[in-house]
Design a protein around this nucleic acid. Structure first.
Lengths: 336, 336
DNA sequence: GTGAAAGCGCTAACAG
DNA sequence: CTGTTAGCGCTTTCAC
């Protein structure tokens, strides 16, 4: 390797000189700003292309205060790459990020590690905001624009939200069950730190009330999506204690599997119906067509979050927008 | 949301003033540079902590020419998140990146899309360099330090390489097979665009030659790791045409499955042994203990690449290092 | 050992 | 419509 680090990158000044204009002119000729430029614009563009000019993002960022980078926050993100949900969410964010020429930076979850790197992002997406996530709270209290992917749990500061329309999806999923008749519905979902968990309980309880049935609740920790054992530990005692329980909604396909397993082992004749409200992983429930489920569109949600955040960022002048919620639809697989 | 964008971030100047020193002094008090600072150093550090000062990476980057960001390049990276190999590689990169306070930016693979964002990275890791990847070639020809994750195929410019010690892993994997006796060994691996594929063929052929056996080769496209059908399409004619073939090495566990399936369907009595040299995905081969495999440590490889790249970047003064190769070990699962 | 000042490459005011 | 100028916040000579 040679000794020289960089072979003198071509600067805007170089382009300007060669095009016979000033840097100022060259600048907004290229970025097509206000002062419309007749043919000078074309000329500058040509020279820029010829020289292979590419703007120094650091310099323009320093000047404008924006980095064209969005941050993605989730608890211990490194591990989470193994979770299909997060992975697909990330893929969605990356896709629209690249389309809009934004970089995506996966934020370090260790709040303890001093990030000198900090504040290199224009805004942040918080995947699955949890009320006991201190770093998320910190981000939301900061001046950075924040978009939450999924509903906010009580206790977190307000911010822009993009979420799945769980209310609609669930009502679609639950309707056929009600038609079959349900006396004692059980729900196992993430605890109160999760906005999603809370919403599930809300909708579930309302639905049960409509039926004149008394619902029962079980709780799992939010991150335990694929923790079948965890689900079993919660479900088993509930099913055992409640002989009349005839319908179970869980927050993950693994919960369904756990429940089915338990029944097969202990009361093969007992008739209990299951449904999943959580992110499906390809095919897990394909072999049990009698189980309906909502398939959370992680990728679409990630894309929508990025879209919304970038929209916010480009909106320029703090247009005094109150934080709002954008809903996206989730496909519902009804039971056979 | 309020209208004001940023609440006036605390600048180095603020720290300097409050500490009663100049910015210059404050600067290298904090970064512990040359001019040793007795107690001024402590004072500045205290004030900085008190004010919650965090350096503006853009500004320092502009000045120093380094961004503390490393890029990760792979063909169509968005899709690739679904591949366990890439995902784990990425996890490794992220992990050491965060440890060294480097951001990781997943580079856009579309060479056609003009990236104004470009050159915001100090160096690049190219995962699985392929000789027909134009973007990879471009990166390697640029002035940016590049580390290739896996061996270079012929045709690509030289660069620093971090790779799995396939030679060693394979010899370990193949040894017991030779002991069992092999007359006609088959290899199905990525084509000549992949350095890894080439290496597999090298080692495989040498091993076969040692045995006095004539090897046969089949080719698959590099990205088709989980394309079982693709493997079958290559393997089936080879096995059919070659009645004596008694050992098959493939570049993916899916290749093994494809081969076993074919045999089960068409010649259940035929004795052919299989082995996989490619990235294992948890458990795919657990049910066939008679099949040995190398389990490519994607995460460790990613980590090693990042480690090496950062080392290169921090090495400062272009210490005229010739590009070299770092090998890491892969676990080998011998057949039962 | 420390302060002052120049300047990284760019954009945004302000003149003309 | 275009040129000139002043910084963005930091690091880095160069004086003292």
């Amino acid at each position: 390797m040679s000794a020289s680090r960089q072979p003198r990158r071509v600067r805007l000044k170089d382009v300007a000189e060669k095009a016979g204009v000033s840097v100022g002119t060259a600048s907004d000729a290229l970025s097509g700003r206000g002062r419309i430029t007749g043919e000078t614009r074309q000329k500058v563009a040509d020279v820029a292309a010829e020289l292979g000019y590419v703007a120094n993002a650091l310099a323009s960022g320093l000047r404008t205060g924006r980095t064209r980078t969005i941050g993605l926050h989730r608890q211990s993100p490194t591990e989470q790459l193994d979770k299909p949900y997060f992975r697909q969410f990330l893929a969605g964010v990356l896709e629209v990020g690249q389309r809009h020429d934004y970089d995506v930076s996966i934020l370090s979850a260790n709040a303890d590690m001093p990030r000198s790197t900090a504040a290199r992002v224009d805004g942040v997406i918080v995947v699955d905001p949890l009320s006991d996530d201190l770093r998320a709270r910190e981000l939301m209290l900061s001046a950075l624009p924040v978009v939450a992917g999924e509903h906010l749990p009580p206790g977190l500061p307000e911010c822009e939200v993009v979420a799945v329309d769980h209310r609609r999806a669930l009502s679609e999923l639950l309707a056929p069950e009600a038609a079959r008749g349900v006396t004692r519905p059980l729900l196992v979902a993430p605890d109160e730190h999760s906005g999603w968990g809370n919403l599930l309980r809300d909708v579930f309880d309302a639905w049960a009330a409509d039926l004149g049935a008394a619902p029962a609740h079980g709780y799992v920790r939010f991150g335990g999506w694929d923790d079948k054992e965890g689900f079993r530990e919660v479900l088993q005692p509930m099913l055992q204690a409640d002989e009349e329980a005839d319908f179970v909604l869980v927050s993950s396909p693994y919960g369904v599997l756990a429940g089915l397993e338990f029944l097969a082992e202990h009361s093969p004749t007992r008739a209990v119906r299951f449904a999943s409200a959580g992110p499906d992983v390809g095919g897990l429930l394909d072999h049990v067509p009698e189980v309906g489920f909502v398939d959370l569109p992680a990728r679409a949600l990630g894309a929508a979050c990025a879209e919304r955040l970038i929209e916010l960022l480009e909106a320029e002048a703090g247009s005094a927008r109150v934080s709002g919620t954008t809903l996206i639809e989730a496909p519902v697989h009804l039971p056979q």
